[in-house]
């Protein structure tokens, strides 16, 4: 009997989840896309190991896991800058590397950034939930039992379609990585509810630094800084939300909605972050400071 190859989690790290490119088409039913917060790093990792862009891998947060695989595998780790080892051998991030059957991939110190993505040639082969393997923690579905990974979890893998030894050593050069920073300038398009804010509130939003709060999660990046004043009560009639929307509740502190966002929201949205800049938000650590810069709509 053929048994599927497995990835075994020896140590889950702080918060590791299975993610694919996301669960699209269900927002109208209240189901957000989930998927990677940093889609650029996720795509780079899949590309380096020869996967389709929507193959399932792991998103890891703050501290990395230790894991091994029952077959020879081509893997890549992209996103936050971690020290990585295969056995005792240091290996680079943003490169395709060989992980031989039974060897342990271990994450060490993190130099910068918050989240990294592990792609494995073939990809993870869990059952799909509403057409996707992406883990949605608030709903408790997708990925492995709708939860973060634990020590001792086994994740089934699709078979390898390539020779890991022949394909290893490819690199995603720094010029093709997102311009991560602990003080990024995020490009935004104002609206759709910019009318819900006073002129002073809009000026504060565009001229101040906002720090990432430790209460941020995959639903939203909560920011702290000068209050953004509303013209009214600070609540509006609920309407549809996408990742990147900047909601401002009555307390005047902005929240950038991320991949696990609620599908509708009743706080006014002062602006929306360009999709290309969301990877910069994904890599923020508590205390990092962001600024916002208006861009005109591209024609």
């Amino acid at each position: 009997m053929a048994t599927s190859d497995m990835m075994e989690i020896l140590d889950p790290g702080f918060l590791s989840t299975v993610q694919d490119a996301g669960r699209y088409g269900w927002l109208r039913y209240g189901v957000p896309p989930s998927g990677p917060l940093d889609a650029a790093a996720f795509q780079a990792a899949n590309t380096l190991v020869g996967n389709a862009p929507d193959a399932a891998g792991l998103e890891i947060t703050w501290t990395g896991p230790a894991l091994r695989i029952t077959r020879d595998a081509l893997i890549a780790v992209c996103g936050a800058d971690f020290e990585l080892r295969v056995g005792r051998r240091p290996v680079p991030v943003w490169h395709s590397i060989v992980l031989r059957a039974g060897e342990v991939l271990r994450f060490g110190a993190r130099q910068s950034g918050a989240r990294a993505y592990i792609a494995i040639d073939g990809g993870i082969a869990l059952p799909q939930y509403l057409g996707s393997q992406a883990t949605y923690l608030p709903g408790g579905f997708g990925g492995l039992e709708g939860r973060a990974l634990h020590t001792g979890d086994h994740l089934p893998l699709h078979p390898s379609q390539l020779d890991p030894f022949a394909e290893a050593g490819k690199c995603c050069p720094p010029s093709q990585r997102p311009p991560y920073s602990s003080k990024p300038i995020l490009r935004v398009i104002l609206g759709p509810q910019v009318e819900a804010f006073t002129q002073e509130g809009i000026v504060a939003f565009l001229s101040s630094s906002y720090g990432l709060s430790a209460t941020s999660n995959r639903m939203g990046a909560r920011l702290q800084g000068p209050s953004i004043a509303h013209t009214g009560t600070g609540s509006s009639i609920s309407d549809g939300v996408i990742a990147g929307c900047i909601q401002v509740p009555p307390d005047g502190q902005p929240i950038i909605m991320l991949a696990d966002h609620q599908s509708t929201g009743g706080y006014p949205k002062i602006a929306v972050v360009l999709q290309a800049d969301l990877p910069l938000v994904a890599q923020l650590l508590p205390g990092d400071q962001v600024r916002f810069q208006i861009v005109e709509r591209t024609p």
Partner: peptide
């Protein structure tokens, strides 16, 4: 158009910017 989200008084229309310009 990737998906649409109806609400009380607005329809959100999500599109793929690779396939259609904003204009």
């Amino acid at each position: 158009v990737r998906e649409t989200v109806p609400s009380y008084c607005a329809l959100l229309v999500v599109y793929d910017p690779q396939l259609s310009s904003a204009a």
